[in-house]
Amino acid sequence: MDTTTDPLVERAIEAAVLVFEESLFVTLERVDAASPMAGETVHTVIAFHGPHEALLHLRLPWPLAAEITADFLGEGEPEEALVLDACGEAANMVAGRLVKALSPEERRYTLEIPTVMVEEDTPLAEGCCEVSTGMQPVHLWLETLEPEPPSNARG
């Protein structure tokens, strides 16, 4: 599936652009083709459940993650734990904005607690889209969750 044309991915990108601009003070623009990120990155994953069941992945280069954290908190250079925490919260807000846009009246979605990982020189994930600050990339992709099989299917 070409996720770059998936309407759900497009909505997720819109949500990320809005959250980064309004809450994290970063303007993002869409990039035609994503490129692998070199160096240390912060990878956050958050699940949402409802009419669509998926994992939302967000990956930022470490320098951008640290910069966003500092700006968000209005403080100087943040500790590593705080950078990871802020990235988790950023993904939480993007997912929250996404599910609100998907179901503004009925509000049929729930979110899980995000998980955050530090990775290095990561390959491009399937379906990955890139937005950019102009200087640094942000990667976002969705991973559809398969519905759990009925309990009696285990035999």
Binding site: V19, G96, K100, T110
Partner: peptide, 21 residues
């Protein structure tokens, strides 16, 4: 932001519900 959760917390008597961001 699920309706079910919002209704649940409002039924518990919270005085405000603000959605992040």
């Amino acid at each position: 932001g699920s309706r079910e959760v919002i209704d649940k917390v409002l039924s518990l008597g919270v005085v405000g519900f603000i959605q992040k961001p």
